[in-house]
Each structure stands twice: as structure tokens, then as C-alpha cells.
Amino acid sequence: MFTIVVDIALIAMAVSLVLCTYRVIAGPTVPDRIVALDAFGLNMVGFVGLLMISLDTAAFSEVILMIAILAFLGSVALAKYWERGLVIDRNPD
């Protein structure tokens, strides 16, 4: 029973990832794609969490943390780069 729920949840998360991918490919502007990539990273976190339950292993706990951090840093760096052409700048606004 429980494994069926986890399997269905994995399928649903896969569908959700596909929808994000659609927006990455189709998005009319670059910021659209950045937002979609950010949502993709968030959904990956949930996907790996479900995978941990499904495979019965605690080995992926670092993976969850790393994906969460990298998705945030990646989307912020992309947004900054798209806004100004550089990632780190000293000018506060």
C-alpha cells in the first residue's frame, strides 16, 4: 500500500518536472526560463526525497541539501547576470 503511494508520487513528481521543462524550452523570454529552472530545482529536491523513501536509503540526504543550495545559487546568479552582465558587484542597488 505504502509503496504504491510512493510510486504514484514519484510519477506525479516526474510529470511536474516535465511541465517545468516545457516552460524552460518554450518560455518566451530568458527570465521565464530562469524561473522555470528554479522551480525545476525545487521539484528535484522533492523527487530525491521520495526516492530516498522508495529505495530505503539515507545516503541521499546530502544530495537534498546540495540540490537546494545549488538551485538557489544558480537561479540568483543567472538572474543577476541577465540583469547586469556580471554576477558579483559592489553596487548595492
Binding site: G49, I64, L65, V76, A79, K80, W82, E83
Partner: peptide
């Protein structure tokens, strides 16, 4: 570590949203 991930997601989601929307509006 998993609880830490929840905390991290909650802290970073609004910041990321603000930066992305601002860059979209400015470009």
C-alpha cells in the same frame, strides 16, 4: 540534514523570487 534543507528552502525561496522578478522587470 533534511530538516536543514526545509529551513533552507523556506529562507531562500522569497529572496530568489524577489531577485528574479526584479531582473525581469529591469530588463
Amino acid at each position: 540534514k533534511i530538516l536543514l534543507a526545509i529551513l533552507f528552502v523556506f529562507l531562500t525561496a522569497p529572496v530568489g523570487a524577489q531577485i528574479m522578478s526584479r531582473s525581469a522587470h529591469r530588463t
